[in-house]
Amino acid sequence: MWNYSEKVEEHFFNPRNAGELADANGIGDVGSLSCGDALRLMIRVDPQTDTILEASFQTFGCGSAIASSSALTEIIKGKTLDEALQVSNQEIADFLDGLPPEKMHCSVMGREALQAAVANYRGEEWSDDHEEGALVCKCFAVDEVLIEDTIRANNLSTVEQVTHYTKAGGGCSACHEGIEEILGKVLAERGESFNADASHSAPAASAAARVSADAEAALSRIEMPSAQPAAAVNEQAPKLTNLQRIRRIEEVIERARPSLQQDRGDIELIDVDGRKIYVKLTGACSGCQVASLTLTGIQQQMMEVLGEFVQLVPVSKAPAGVEA
């Protein structure tokens, strides 16, 4: 049985604001039966003040999905729409005194329903880049799809590189065999074979320890490993000013837009914060798989023009404070 916090159990056994909201003026539906969880979030917004007066939910899913929905409605009641949109999935998890890593997607679903409900109220189209596969790294909740895409986009070939880029494998290391298997599969696609010994002699030998010590801090320290991916990045590039960096980032975004627009989608630069670049994918281009591949492709181009490691973050995953 899951080790749920008392708060999760409390919100599961006594969900707040469950059921239909008769006079809702914003409704957000996410999930599906086949995925095993789905959520309808209903909000009643005061048009004068843009404040959420009431919120309710209906959820099909596990204990933590129901508890996350309940928590979400409690958190957003009384907030303005802009304030509510800044609620991150982490905040939902924190409200419940934490969720097991395998269950973090329940809080993500809550956030997505909120975005959908606000978009519905405002009469906007909402679409999402959400995608998930089987969880490989349970310490940092990294799934197979993300690992595969990252290996492809960055030409990775060792477990340590995967840990650098995704954090996967940076904790208890029980998933290293799984990561090796994914590497083997992706490398086979490009006609190479996975060499386990190479990962032991990789340059940044203590990557795993570093990431597990402090995943976020480690991310900012990460430099491009000097293996194959380095070819794509000019380590000796002169240091750019912030303005120069942003201009180059914008150029890459502008280059990417026409092909996205052809598919009735678009991408917008939201913010640049150190090595994290926040973007928003809109329109039809946000069909799960494609969106994730698009992002890793654009991220690769950015690393090439900037000569440094950067991470492209879709705004749905941005921390509080970054406006969508």
Binding site: M1, F12, F13, G36, F60, G61, C62, G63, A65
Partner: peptide
């Protein structure tokens, strides 16, 4: 149909 097993188990456990 239309409900999820873990929720059922948690309530049964109660």
């Amino acid at each position: 149909e239309y409900i999820e097993g873990e929720s059922i188990l948690l309530l049964l456990n109660k």
